[in-house]
Amino acid sequence: MSFWTRHQIFEKNSIILIGGILAMIAVGGLVEITPLFYLKSTIEVVDGVRPYTPLELAGRNIYVREGCYLCHSQMVRPLRDEVERYGHFSLAAESMYDHPFQWGSKRTGPDLARVGAKYSDDWHVTHLVNPRAIVPQSVMPGYPYLAATEVDPTGIADHLRTNRVVGVPYSDDQVANAAADLKAQADPDNAGVEAFTKRYPKAVARNFDGKGGAPTEMDALVAYLQMLGTLVDFKLYNEKANLR
């Protein structure tokens, strides 16, 4: 019996064809899923990655609220042109505390995965208030009201608790001091800065919007943007790659 003759069994009998399809899907599914049961985590362990500070988390919430993810992705793909333009390709661990992640699917503007520390706080404030003052051809809307709107610190502890429910390892101490930490990060003269930096290593405390007083939504959004891509020391990755 030739191959084509045997194949007619599937072509002429729909029940056998469906059974064959289901069998192939089952085998393929087992091949893909079974190894995952033997992995402790599908995310690599990376030094430096930490949960967002309360101010950064508030900034991220504003980023999502204003729809920034619709025009800016946060995922550098491992392609030469992207790596040369934006920097080291994104690691899964960098998004492990994002709920939901901000990888995006469209780039009207540039990718922001490595925007942290690339520009000054003043640059970000000016760009957010009037994008065309920085990039004349920009189609991005302005957000001047962020600088005039104070961040409400009363609900930030609830945001930390909610994130903890889905796996973000906020401690009881971090939750209890969420409001104080939010204020401390935006005021380097605040008495609670030392305690804040112990709870969030590598976090930077400064006046992000350049104004005194209570933290504004501009403080929060700039704090969030300035930490993107800064937690991982990619020099170590590049050195390891060169040694191979």
Rank of each mutant, 00 (worst) to 15 (best):
L39P: 02
I33S: 07
I16G: 03
A186V: 08
V64H: 03
D111A: 08
R50E: 01
W4C: 07
K183N: 12
K12G: 04
G210E: 07
P144W: 04
I33F: 15
F3Q: 03
R114I: 05
L182S: 12
L30E: 04
F208K: 06
F234A: 04
G104Q: 03
A58P: 09
M218E: 02
Y52L: 11
T126K: 15
R77Q: 07
E82R: 02
G59A: 03
G210Q: 08
E56A: 13
K235D: 15
G155N: 08
E66C: 01
K118F: 03
Q74F: 04
T230C: 04
T162K: 14
K106R: 13
Y143I: 00
I25M: 13
H99S: 14
R132F: 10
Y170M: 15
V139A: 12
D181Y: 13
Q174C: 09
K118A: 03
D158N: 07
Q185T: 10
R80V: 10
N13H: 14
R199V: 12
V175S: 13
Q226E: 05
I9V: 14
K240H: 09
Q137G: 05
A220Q: 09
R132V: 13
E217P: 07
A195Q: 14
W103Y: 12
E239W: 02
D121V: 03
T108I: 11
D187F: 09
L128V: 04
